[in-house]
Amino acid sequence: MSESKQRWRLVFARDEEARYLSHLDASHLWERAMRRGQVPVAMSEGFSPRPRLVFAAPLPLGMLAEHELADLFVSRRLTRREMRGCLEAGMPRGFRLIDLRDEWVGAPALATELVAADYRLTLLGVDEDRLHPAAEALLRAESLPRERRREKKVTAYDLRPLLLALQTRAAEAAGLDRGQPAAGIWMRLRHSQRQGSGRPEEVVAALADHLGLRVEAFEQQETEKPKGEEDGEVRPSERTFAPSIEPATAALLEMVRPVRERLWLDGEAPVDATGPEP
């Protein structure tokens, strides 16, 4: 274990090239990036020491991001300029460094400071005129009892307190068939270790229910391993932004271009806000 002399808070975006990474694969990519850039990263304690790079919240596979957060602990003090140089020298493709802040080493863990996350995505199969009242109805509801499945376990929960804001918009036009109904949607969801976190696909499912539309179901993806090869690492199953339904029974409401716009830390965002600042 190497002592952490400095803690850098990384603000970064994830673009198309890095979009289909799982969280574990992304961590691996960053480790190699730090080797390429010769970042003097501090190592964790334990039997198999890992570089101390801690992400605020895993980003689901398939999701783009504009303002993600991670803390990087280094074993030697660097200037901001040096740190940026090291990182950018080896930065994995598809990741963009937006900001870099020198944090107090003893500050609380990033994940415990998270309070909310903003998402935007495009829905195919509905237009804004039809979507808007459904969004309003969700916001008016006192509670939104729903079920969350993880493997075979089903948990009942209330989505409403997790939904902090919801807005409909015109669809981002790029690449859409003309004539196909589409709408944009923006939401702010609670993202908190203590108070729970909402997921954008669950909000979309609630909207679909309200509209009487079917939506793609989501499942855990199992990873597979090539036969006869024992060299490949086995990866635990991970949540991905991938529906399980076969095309023949495809959903009537389809989500495309999901983006996590921003993660909010305690004290940064008005958590009760009903919408983003203009």
Binding site: E17, S22, R36, L61, R93, G175, P243, E254
Partner: peptide, 21 residues
Amino acid sequence: LAVERVLRHVRKPGRYAGGEW
């Protein structure tokens, strides 16, 4: 868009997505 609608339905879409160092 066509790429996205395929990739979000398949296992390990990173196999087909590119962006490698």
